[in-house]
Nucleic acid binder design. Structure first.
Lengths: 392, 392
DNA sequence: ACCTATTCCTTTATCGTGTCAACGAAAAGA
DNA sequence: TCTTTTCGTTGACACGATAAAGGAATAGGT
């Protein structure tokens, strides 16, 4: 275990040390005794594991809070999360978003650039541009995470079946590593968002929940027993075409009554704009109409809420989740959709199931990029690459 | 690691040895080199781990099959599953079913006894009676698994919230251990069934699938990435009251159009019996009517198939499962329900999702008991109790 | 028949990791 | 001050895994 003298990277630590760092990151300051209980190790092991970490300045002893117990108070260990920086990138069909975050998921800086086309050269160039822009000093970034649509595993190296870019089997991680010198990992974007929510978003501390995103499409991420589900090849989350009503408008694929036909931004704006003979209604305008009491807008939002509620109830019925987190840029409608949503939940929930806590998590595209940064951090703490490429 | 000279129990093995046994059990005969690759260990480790197992007669070298590779052929190792016997018990409101199975899940013997009441004394007595009946010799059974409804974890010791028996917080495992001398574990019954399907049923070799049961109720088990999902407290699988239609009959809880109202045995028999003015229609009679071309029966079965198809499509949309296994005593209707089911799947499946393989697994209550036996075996191979109680 | 490449399996020395048992340290309460 | 309780450290020790090296068994080429 060769470790550089002053600033060891998280990925270069041994498995036990990584487990300690992970636990400290997720559960805040903990005494060694508490760590021993959580990790099911003996106190002696924890001392041995933490000693070099403390010596290297990676973790330090907090000042003990006024203890409430009887015996000798524990010395809480804190991880200096700000020492470890990660970049997260989210690639959509027309824009690239990037953030710099520390190990605790706190965003320090962000940037984004439009994509003029979706060719490999263009996308790679813009990502590299953003990486350079957000890198404070060479070698200061421990890993780069890229989130984009497709059938990628948790820590993947290759873009697979991305419909928006029309890419398949593109070894993007390797390309970016060569260009930037930063270890790079890819992940399916909804999964990355879910990871971000779980580690340092509203899902923090919850063992079981779902993330339901509303915007251009309808997305889903599921966390059960602290694990983000992926399914065979990242196929979890195709929830958009779930039938939520026997009637209603058609979705873009010609289905009647499916969730997308009620929930996507496009469905909502057209559902309101068309009866009014207007084609300039965007989501904000639609919300304004509803604020002003427009009957059409109120009805469309109510229907959207209903669809959302049905999806939530189905999720909870099937998986028994105690909480559902709503996210996405289409969430602005929630104020007008909440009533319909709650009615639909009550109507469709199994009478033996307990009602889930529904949390609205208003967030922009940065949140998707932040999720990718969290995935990069998880990569280092769970399954780090064998040897770090030398960025010198 | 004290090991009895001739017949070591699976639970007394070390973690690595258990991992080897697990892999051999699930993936058939494997050479040491193949084991090393699957378990991500070095070949040297595998040799050290398997040596005592071979010496003890627990596993043995198979005669090498005609190899297709170039180098020295591997010596396939086989586990003598018949050496390790487990009992599985399934408790319903009016009957107790039990089987004796070996480590590979093969059923050697089975028995069942009616319950005159659901008091603790009665249930415990009948279970012990069945255990004695199925135990060939004292000490020959390595563990006992009990499956019953309730909110139990994977390997639980206490019955929690069992509605059928009206039990809560009953330390059944301890009671049975004291009486029988056999290490005992409890599990929620649908989860046990799913485990049985996964290890030695039609789900064998599949990493991701769902088990949908039809009978008195509608049940669900989900396996993702080789793990059986449980949710917070065994709450996965409350799928019965999922709305599958805006119209249709009421279910027992007064919901309109929910899955139970189309799928449970009671719903089907009444749906056919009432229009005919008959109260003696059971499931077999209903199937006979449909065989004879009775319009009502055909329609009811078609509706049931439709409901089943909607549930399957929703499952696949949400979790991306490539296969769904149908089980339960209500499955006899499938011949007449298949058309409706397939139509509903096609209609409700997300157009981007691949159609799941739907497998019918005709089975009786023994299958539930067998699942409990498999859970007992898993218990020994995954998380064995500290020290075996001495049955002498 | 012989050699080589390949794959498999085992042995030895060694190392990392974890535990046990014992002990010292720091608090609260009697 | 003494006891109790909990926390943290130390050293001896066991276990499990590995790397390195070499023997064993096969296919294929010369």
């Amino acid at each position: 275990m060769q470790r550089s003298a002053d600033a060891p990277t998280l990925g270069s630590l041994g498995p036990s040390a990584r487990a300690v760092v992970r636990t400290l990151l997720l559960a805040g300051p903990l005494s060694r005794a508490e760590l021993a209980r959580r990790l099911e190790r003996s106190p002696a092991s924890i001392t041995k594991i933490t000693q070099p970490l403390v010596a290297d300045g990676l973790i330090s002893e907090d000042t003990a809070p006024p203890g409430e117990s009887r015996g000798r108070p524990g010395a809480p260990l804190v991880l200096d999360a700000a020492l470890h920086l990660f970049l997260g990138v989210k690639v959509t069909a027309d824009e690239v978003y990037a953030v710099r975050a520390d190990a605790s998921g706190r965003v320090e800086a962000s940037a984004h650039r439009p994509l003029v086309d979706v060719g490999q050269a263009t996308v790679v160039r813009e990502i590299i541009e953003l990486v350079n822009e957000l890198t404070p000093a060479p070698g200061s970034i421990q890993a780069l995470g890229v989130g984009l649509a497709g059938q990628m595993s948790r820590f993947d190296r290759t873009v697979r079946a991305n419909a928006y870019l029309g890419w398949d089997r593109v070894p993007l991680a390797e390309i970016l590593e060569r260009a930037t010198g930063i270890p790079t990992v890819l992940s399916e974007d909804a999964r990355a968002l879910t990871a971000g929510v779980q580690w340092s978003g509203p899902g923090r501390g919850m063992r079981d929940f779902a993330v339901l995103t509303v915007g251009v499409g309808v997305g889903l991420g599921v966390v059960i027993e602290d694990r983000v589900l992926a399914g065979p090849t990242g196929k979890v989350g195709r929830i958009g075409h779930t039938r939520v009503s026997d009637s209603g408008p058609l979705c873009s694929q010609g289905h009647r009554g499916c969730a997308s036909a009620f929930l996507t931004t496009r469905s909502v704006t057209q559902g309101i704009g068309v009866p009014h003979g207007r084609s300039d209604v965007d989501l904000d305008a639609a919300i304004e109409l509803a604020d002003a009491g427009d009957e059409v807008a109120l009805r469309v939002f109510d229907d959207a809420g209903h669809a959302l509620g049905v999806l939530i109830a189905q999720l909870v019925n099937m998986l028994g989740l105690p909480a559902v987190i709503l996210a996405g840029d289409g969430l602005g409608m929630l104020a007008h959709a909440r009533t319909g949503m709650e009615a639909a939940i009550a109507e469709h929930l199994d009478p033996n199931a307990t009602a889930p806590e529904v949390v609205a998590f208003t967030s922009g595209f940065d949140e998707w990029a932040r999720g990718a940064a969290v995935v990069a951090c998880q990569w280092m703490l769970v399954d780090p690459p064998r040897s770090d490429p030398d960025p010198a």
